[in-house]
Write a protein that binds this DNA or RNA. Sequence first.
DNA 1: GATAGTTTCATACAACTGTTTGAAATGCAA
DNA 2: TTGCATTTCAAACAGTTGTATGAAACTATC
Lengths: 223, 223
Amino acid sequence: MASDHTRTAILNAAERLYADRGFGDVTLRDIVAAANVNLAAVNYHFGSKDELIAELFVTRSLATNRERLNELRNAEEAGGGRAGIDAIFRALVGPTLRGCLGPSSEGSTAARFMIRASIESVPPIRRIKNREVDHLRKFAAAMRRSLPGRAEADLYWALHFALAMAHHTIRERERLTKLSEGVCDLDDVQGIIERVVAVSAMALMGGEAKTKAPARVAARDAR
Amino acid sequence: MASDHTRTAILNAAERLYADRGFGDVTLRDIVAAANVNLAAVNYHFGSKDELIAELFVTRSLATNRERLNELRNAEEAGGGRAGIDAIFRALVGPTLRGCLGPSSEGSTAARFMIRASIESVPPIRRIKNREVDHLRKFAAAMRRSLPGRAEADLYWALHFALAMAHHTIRERERLTKLSEGVCDLDDVQGIIERVVAVSAMALMGGEAKTKAPARVAARDAR
DNA sequence: GATAGTTTCATACAACTGTTTGAAATGCAA
DNA sequence: TTGCATTTCAAACAGTTGTATGAAACTATC
């Protein structure tokens, strides 16, 4: 037990430094200097550098996943076991985008850390991300309940594209601002979420009316 | 001039090693060992490790960009100055997806290197990517010509989402296979391209008929 | 075949990395 | 206070990294 003071000081300093300068050029010595603790404290409290990074990422990651599942559960309860497809996508990408975008994310170390984690891909984080399959399957299941007739492949492709748009927007938000010369407002988080949700739903629906039968989205006029 | 033998041996070995094991844990010593050349040869021929990586990436990157612009030009000429929106997206994501996906990409070192470069983000590569704004603006211009009435923001968001889907598919292709338990066929490159193109077009069109007036895609029922 | 320029080589360099060690300090129970 | 366990600390360790050096080998020109 004890005071935990050193432990949390390390966690805070590490999160801030990694967020600001990336995993690539932050050493344990940088961290302990910022935390005002001894170099050996990291290995004493966490075992290794990788385990420190893993703990940082797992904490934030679990929080996001909890938020997602909360939103999903609420949507399904509101719909009597079946959530609308929009609500499902909103539960999937909303928490991540809200957490990492918008003016508040500039100040939040947690947000900047997660952005960094999505840009640089270090081994300990990759290992954790690979365990997220079960979590995503829950969203696939919700989609299946919501649209029983849909082809499995279309389901997963839509899920995949939703995550693609969300993560890419977080990763490349600066580039998008520069590319569009400020025309794309990265601070309008709710607008972005609805945009991603709408496109994801269209990816699944093939641009047809929401309640209609399956519509293939793929291979039309090849080239 | 001279034989260039050493130079190209380094380039080949480096590309293969980076493709296989990532930038993180391939050292210059690994490279020169695989290339059967002296350690000092890298600094002699390239100046530094970062310049070697940069040269590798620039070469492949320019090739892709050339291919993209070729396809775009062809599409615009075929349409008398105005390419169809599908053709524009196809020119944008086609070369990248064809290069990095499909059974052939397993064998191609170049493809595996570019996949690696899109997963790990090292400083020299990031610097080059940031100079790609001009290149992407050409596609924005083509979209503008194709659909003069469209709002600028919608244009850039669709462009952004197209790249998002393409790159995310490349980055996470293994995860998607595992997640979907093989239901998503990552070897059907043409099918994937058409899927991405269709969704991108829908992102821009808002699910309405292709020739209709602007349709906002964003903020409907917030939450 | 001597000369000048290029390329290769073995080796050293200097710095930095995460981790370990063993002793000192601290906190807490009896 | 005594004793015991936890925590901190300075120092060193062992290994790796990219880069620099200066001599040797080569190549082509005159």
